[in-house]
Simulated scan of single mutants.
Amino acid sequence: MSADLFTNYESELAELITSIRQRLDSTLPDLTGDARRNELRTTQSELKEAGELAGQMEMELLTLQGPTRSRATPRVHQLKAEVERLQHEANMAAQGLGNYEANRRALLGDQQADDLLLLDSGEDRLGSGDQRTRLLSGNERLAKGSQRLQQSHRIAIETEAVGASILNDLRTQREQIVNTRETLMQADSHIDLSHRTLRTMARRSMTNKMIVTGLIVIGVSLVVLVLYIKLTR
């Protein structure tokens, strides 16, 4: 599942990078005034989303194993570097817009500059169809972002379930180890008791042997004594 999710993130990030690159190279240079500012805001929003996708890819990269991870690592670094490069270009474009308006006001005066801005705004309204298209595209990306959040939430729930299962297994194993330890302690006490019993039996056996030996010696002595008395008469 991690590999599939990583592939989805990579595909979405590649689409975002293509969209941002098209805005910076083709759309922004032809716009001025409010339309340019709106386009820059949209670009910055897409760059933020691209950065989040790059972060998600780095997180998913940690879950990959072996050759899959080795192949994916350079792609992540390349895409992340491209996002940073686009961010720099967008910042430069935004800075250029501020410098352009400041220079125009310095040359034409505030009133004429405002009039030109109004004209630019009027021209920008002609591109409302493009803005509607961009809005639909933004909604689509928002839906994809929601889907990614749902996938991440599902993965988190699955991970939590796996963690709970592991904890239950560890708890069961701990109980088994404790029970085994108690059994071993009981067996050790039984062995010690058996050892003491064997020593007691050994002492009793030795005592019995000594008694029997003494009786035999006494019996033999009596027999010898009786024979001696009979022979000496």
Rank of each mutant, 00 (worst) to 15 (best):
S2V: 02
S2A: 08
L5H: 00
N8L: 15
N8G: 13
N8T: 14
E10P: 05
E10N: 09
S11R: 06
E12C: 03
E15R: 02
I17H: 00
I17T: 01
T18D: 09
S19G: 06
I20D: 00
Q22G: 08
D25L: 14
S26P: 02
L28F: 04
D30V: 13
A35S: 07
R36H: 05
E39K: 01
Q44V: 11
Q44W: 03
G51R: 00
G51N: 01
L53Y: 00
E60K: 02
L61D: 00
L62A: 09
P67E: 08
R69T: 02
T73M: 13
H77R: 12
Q78Y: 08
Q78L: 15
L79W: 01
L79I: 05
A81Q: 15
A81E: 14
E84P: 01
L86M: 10
L86K: 01
H88F: 04
A90M: 03
A90K: 00
M92E: 12
A94S: 05
G96I: 11
G98M: 12
Y100A: 12
E101D: 09
N103R: 07
N103E: 13
R104S: 10
G109K: 13
D110K: 06
Q111P: 05
D115E: 14
L117E: 13
D120H: 01
S121Q: 13
E123G: 02
R125C: 08
L126S: 04
T133L: 12
R134A: 03
L136Q: 06
S137R: 00
L142R: 10
A143R: 02
G145A: 13
Q147W: 04
Q147T: 11
L149H: 11
Q150E: 11
Q151K: 04
S152L: 14
H153Q: 15
R154H: 12
R154T: 13
A156F: 08
E158L: 15
V162F: 09
G163S: 07
I166S: 09
N168P: 03
L170I: 08
L170T: 05
T172V: 13
Q176L: 12
N179L: 15
T180V: 11
T183I: 11
T183E: 04
L184D: 03
M185F: 06
Q186S: 13
D188I: 11
S189M: 15
S189E: 14
S194P: 11
S194W: 06
H195T: 13
R196M: 03
R196V: 02
T197L: 15
R204S: 12
I211A: 10
I211F: 05
G214S: 06
L215P: 06
V217S: 04
G219Q: 15
L222K: 06
V226G: 04
L231K: 08
T232G: 05
